[in-house]
Design a binder for these strands. Structure first.
Length: 497
RNA sequence: GCCGGCGUAGCUCAGUUGGUUAGAGCGCCUGCCUGUGGAGCAGGAAGUCCUUGGUUCGAAUCCAAGCGUCGGUACCA
């Protein structure tokens, strides 16, 4: 019988890869987002919001033949049998928006923050619903816009308290990479698949090292777990081109450009890429952003899909030791690049665009790890208790008085006795509790309890509970008229600033 | 996608070579104490032992698959 009833109860469960985010983290994230927004706005980017749901073809995810959307996204059919999906980034919706609003003043510069959704295996710091915070410039092919992306990245990270030297923005250009691929091909045709494979191998440099890349480009590579990854199967001469490319490490951006130019000399697309990097370098120098903040790094690949020119990523360079004693690094928290073909899908006309995106959750985790996100977890520092339910109207008046004075104040709305009310106040992080009963009403006073002090003093109570109850060392009385002032005084004891 | 660890109360976990009614600590609720947080004492609620199938007289325990979770690797628009 009873078992039968229980089996009908709804099981409390949550979708894989999704999270509940509690007060502290929400507050920390909000604070972070507002600081980022300030930086974006400082550069003239304006907000945009788009729906969470889009048509699948707008997102660019569909298999022309199979009547099924591509994997990796949350999709379903709407009431008109159309395929609809949750957005998996903020760039595709931006492209759609620009295509639908052709009268926007160009360049159009917008920022957008919000959750995006992907169906992938959740991992450490990887979820199926996560926040991105993007900014983009649409409608200009000027490298100044790309250089500005790098500057905004720097300013953003510093605005969040990350010190110069603890991060670096790395820049590369897809055209340079394409030039290198062309040189590897050496006149032969290089299939897209092989090109892709080479780029992926390059992308793994910081994980597997230069020897690892060499193996990946050649016969393949076995990692320490014994897993074998098949290689690209390039010849020694071809591998040498890539290795020489990856070995370029010059002191200045200009010198790096020189070295790159030497490598892709005579290859049109490569030369074009180097020229773009030179323009970016110049713009960065004009803005005062030197090599201590932005470097040209040939090893940057950044995804493989729609980037057409410069690509950049913001990387945190410090390590953090987590609670298990394991050293972790956060790596890339910011990524972006130029995508000149994305709006064309809708309009048939090329529309230049460039921008970058913050992985909000990862950056927040990094900030929390280095203690740059102190938030006060108690929204309201004050609790008005209800000792005598008949005096509720007076309690409400006191609460309103405090609120009018700018003190977030909670009126106890539960049904428990005063003892439980103090426990509640303490457990929910309140700093101060206000008590008024018959005694106080008679004498025209209120009792105020410093809960934090109470916690401290309670360590020393020992067994003499009666004495503690009589003396109440953390509590004092004050005239009813001085309520606000007294509360302010108690709160001032603990105010951080 | 592939490889591995782990799934027992809200949490952290114990549970003998397979054996009767599945335990502990913390937390929660009630009372001692209806005007006070800690401590103490007394009592209480709370379990599909992840699921399904198999082996067995008998399974939380052994086997298989699945699901979940954590980690490695791949992918990352």
């Amino acid at each position: 019988m009873a078992k039968n009833v229980k089996s009908k109860r709804t099981k409390a469960r949550r979708l894989k890869g999704f999270r509940d985010i509690s007060a502290d983290d929400v507050l920390a994230r909000d604070m972070m987002i507002s600081r980022i927004r300030e930086v974006y706005e400082r550069y003239g980017f304006a907000p945009l919001e788009t729906p969470a749901l889009e048509y699948v073809d707008v997102l660019g995810k569909f298999l022309p033949e199979a009547d099924q959307p591509d994997g990796g996204i949350f999709a379903f059919r709407d009431e008109d049998e159309e395929w609809v999906a949750l957005r998996y980034d903020l760039t595709a919706p931006l492209s759609r928006f620009v295509a639908m609003n052709r009268d926007l003043p160009m360049p159009y510069r917008r920022y957008q923050v919000g959750p995006v959704y992907r169906v992938e295996k959740p991992g450490p710091g990887r979820f199926r619903e996560f926040f991105q915070f993007d900014f983009d410039s649409v409608g200009t092919s000027s490298m100044l816009a790309d250089a500005e992306c790098c500057m905004v990245m720097c300013d953003t990270l510093e605005a969040l308290g990350i010190l110069r030297g603890d991060y670096v923005v790395r820049v590369n250009d897809r055209k340079v990479l394409n030039g290198v691929l062309e040189k590897v091909a050496d006149g032969e045709a290089l299939s897209d698949r092989v090109g892709l494979h080479i780029l992926r191998s390059i992308d793994k440099l910081d994980r597997v090292g230069i020897e690892g890349v060499e193996q990946l480009l050649g016969p393949g590579r076995k990692d320490e777990s014994g897993d074998f990854m098949s290689g690209v199967g390039l010849g020694a001469k071809q591998i040498d081109v890539v290795i020489r490319y990856l070995s370029i490490q010059e002191k200045t951006r200009a010198a790096t450009c020189d070295a790159l130019q030497q490598l892709v000399e005579g290859i049109a697309v490569g030369m074009e890429g180097v020229a773009e990097l030179r323009e970016i370098d110049e713009a960065l120098r004009g803005g005062g952003y030197d090599e201590d903040r932005v470097v040209i790094d040939p090893t940057v690949v950044r995804g493989l899909a729609y980037y057409t020119g410069p690509v950049f990523e913001g990387v945190l360079t410090f390590d953090v030791v987590d609670e298990k004693g394991v050293t972790r690094q956060f790596g890339s928290v910011f990524g972006g690049g130029r995508y000149d073909n994305l709006v064309q899908r809708f309009t048939g006309q090329q529309m230049a665009a460039t921008g970058a995106s913050i992985g909000v959750d990862r950056l927040l985790a990094a900030l929390q790890a280095i203690g740059k996100t102190q938030v006060d977890s108690a929204i309201a520092p004050a609790l008005v208790t209800r000792l005598d339910k008949n005096l509720t109207a007076e309690y409400q008046r006191m609460a309103q008085e405090l609120r009018s004075a700018g003190i977030n104040t909670e009126l106890y709305v539960g049904k428990q006795g005063i003892g439980k009310q103090f426990k509640y106040a303490s457990d929910s992080g309140k700093t101060v509790a206000i008590v008024m009963g018959e005694d106080e009403l008679q004498s025209g006073e209120v009792s105020i309890k410093d809960l934090r002090l109470g916690v401290e003093l309670s360590q020393e109570i020992g067994s003499d509970r009666k004495k503690w109850l009589e003396e109440q060392p953390a509590q004092f009385s004050t005239p009813r008229s001085g309520l606000v002032k007294s509360i302010q005084e108690v709160l001032a004891r603990y105010s951080a600033i």
